[in-house]
Nucleic acid binder design. Sequence first.
DNA 1: CAGCGTCCTTGACGCAGGTCAAACGGGGGC
DNA 2: GCCCCCGTTTGACCTGCGTCAAGGACGCTG
Lengths: 247, 247
Amino acid sequence: MAQQFNLATQHCGDCPIRHRAVCARCETDELEQLEQIKYYRSFQAGQTVVWSGDRMDFVASVVSGIATLSQTMEDGRRQMVGLLLPSDFVGRPGRERAAYDVTATTDLLMCCFRKKPFESMMVSTPHVAQRLLEMTLDELDAAREWMLLLGRKTAREKIASLLAILARRDAALALRKPGGRLVFDLPLTREQMADYLGLTLETVSRQITALRKDGVIDLEGTRHVKVASFDRLLEETGDDTDGGFLV
Amino acid sequence: MAQQFNLATQHCGDCPIRHRAVCARCETDELEQLEQIKYYRSFQAGQTVVWSGDRMDFVASVVSGIATLSQTMEDGRRQMVGLLLPSDFVGRPGRERAAYDVTATTDLLMCCFRKKPFESMMVSTPHVAQRLLEMTLDELDAAREWMLLLGRKTAREKIASLLAILARRDAALALRKPGGRLVFDLPLTREQMADYLGLTLETVSRQITALRKDGVIDLEGTRHVKVASFDRLLEETGDDTDGGFLV
DNA sequence: CAGCGTCCTTGACGCAGGTCAAACGGGGGC
DNA sequence: GCCCCCGTTTGACCTGCGTCAAGGACGCTG
């Protein structure tokens, strides 16, 4: 299912996320250094990678699959605060314990770096630190976009926004433009979507049904989505349609 | 009102945010470099610093006063996505245009760096880049905390959380512990609080009244807050009371 | 094939918070 | 002193989404 790139003989040069992950800017000698402190770990769909508050002695890149970051309140209310896709970075140099629950929502392969030596590399090899800064700034922008969604959008707009993000990402992976018709699979259950959007799973289900009835999307089974017109979907997100995306 | 530190003869060595801003880690020779590309700008309460989408040829540190970052939807719904206090950083190296509206909510003094030379320094002086990464990671954590608030907290919990943050920060500036009784002024109008919390100003007003009636806070006029018991306030935020704060 | 578990949908109902409207209060200008 | 403006409070009403509950679709196991 996930591209099984051989765990015994992995070389960074062959890595599918080589050009987008935290190592993107590294020269070959820097890669060799990274190679010495890295190891792979894989998780099954549904498994927890770490619990918030746990000691965490590595940082990592997602190689394949999808993971989530989430926070839980004492009474069980949960909010997802990050959706990690291939090439995304997990963990914070200089921090000893995980600040969030990290969960594999699909089968997941992570490229882990031992924290201590990684922290040294942060100082010695600027290319790693530079790339990490860039990625962190992107994440901050995404988080702020998400704050607008959580604070001000209606349930329908939230669903449309999530679908638009997933569609865009899917198109990006397949190197297509998200212009016309799109087809993709939802990588999240209704409950996970609800946790992402600050809704209940019932509301998610109802709004998806509504978007289907209104012809914005088409569903085959419960996860397979067809978007007839991406522009139509965008109209439903409440975002500026015309305004170009920065980034 | 703001500590008027003389704009004509400013030296980084005397700067009130010297030890906490993006320049915190710099040695004296690095400071001298920064000094050559910096200039001060001040804004009156209510003024806009930049509009989202505007060209922005500087990055900056807040020296004194408070600024906000916010996003606005076409129909006028607004969400604050950042509250900038002294030492906080504004702008993104490598980006040409502002991604958010930046507004001065009090009289504001900013230490601006011309973007081009600042970007060169990012490469040449690792201390600047390191500090910026650290600050950005902190901001990302704060943003994620805020996502939990926006997505899952009740109106009362939102208000209590905001008050707790303001109280904590005020105590930090004054070098006191937020243990017992606290007194501070709200730096935001009810409407700005609403924009921060994803509420309407009416709901903010009602919940503040409710907290006052329940003896959690005490109000003198409309902005001056007394917190009898910080622990009591924390109970109202919905957060883990016991759990230590990471950071 | 029956039985079960997981995920999803749908309906009925209630309430937290949004909307609309009116009025208050304090500070500044004249 | 008076007026006006802005931020704020309060009330009455409404509605979007949450809650609770039931049932359907699908896949897995025995």
